[in-house]
């Protein structure tokens, strides 16, 4: 296993880079999208609420792999040429944004209507109240859950391997099936994934515990 890594380290590292890049890009995009749809979901307009919940339900209930394949195969035929990495990152972003929207929405609900009323009666507009009072609290409240979404996102980024996205999983495949050292090659990328996900999920657990103590 060590010689396997020594012989192919640059390939693994390139995969590691693609996995990190894809995950971070998708995180940013899905945070933005997720916040927008969460705001639409709590808005006063019925049409906007309907739009948001349709979007959320669609992406929450269809497998990520199917979403990604559609972006990779169908979109280039009719709309615009995109490569596997881009298609995969878009798929990941849309899929994750639906979950993030739900998380942030419950954060907003947890902050409570009283805060909004208070801010409004202090002369703030709806937008200002959201921007300066509600959202910051909602984010803080849902931070552990958002962190867990990010862990999921990193794990889910392995679907890039289906669309030639040059991520960790794709490189593991490529090395596994050219050297025929299948299990060792997957063990190596397993360690790479754990380097990313383990610290993050332990930190989130720590945050959750801290949060609970403060509440009590």
């Amino acid at each position: 296993m060590f010689t396997l890594f020594a012989n192919n380290w640059s390939t693994y590292l390139s995969g590691f880079g693609h996995t990190i890049a894809g995950s971070v890009l998708a995180l940013i995009a899905s945070l933005i999208l997720g916040t927008v749809f969460a705001l639409l979901e709590v808005s006063e307009s019925r049409a906007l609420r309907g739009l948001a919940s349709t979007y959320i339900e669609i992406f929450r209930n269809i497998p990520l792999l199917v979403v990604t394949m559609v972006f990779y195969l169908v979109i280039p035929m009719y709309v615009v040429k995109i490569n596997g990495f881009t298609a995969g990152t878009i798929g990941l972003s849309l899929y994750t944004s639906a979950f993030i929207a739900e998380t942030i929405r419950s954060g907003i609900n947890a902050v409570g209507d009283g805060q909004m009323e208070g801010a409004r009666s202090n002369g703030m507009t709806y937008v200002e109240a959201m921007r300066y009072v509600i959202l910051p609290q909602a984010f803080r409240f849902s931070l552990p859950a958002l962190g867990n979404q990010f862990v999921n996102l990193i794990k889910n980024s392995s679907v890039l391997s289906f669309v030639a996205g040059f991520d960790l999983m794709y490189q593991a495949d490529s090395i596994a099936f050219s050297t025929y050292q299948v299990i060792p090659s997957y063990l190596i990328v397993g360690i790479f994934y754990l380097i990313l996900t383990m610290p993050l999920s332990y930190y989130m657990k720590h945050l959750e515990k801290g949060g609970r103590k403060q509440d009590v």
Partner: peptide, 10 residues
């Protein structure tokens, strides 16, 4: 925790 932090694909 190890299992939870690995991609299912793996």
């Amino acid at each position: 925790d190890l299992i939870r932090n690995l991609p299912l694909l793996l």
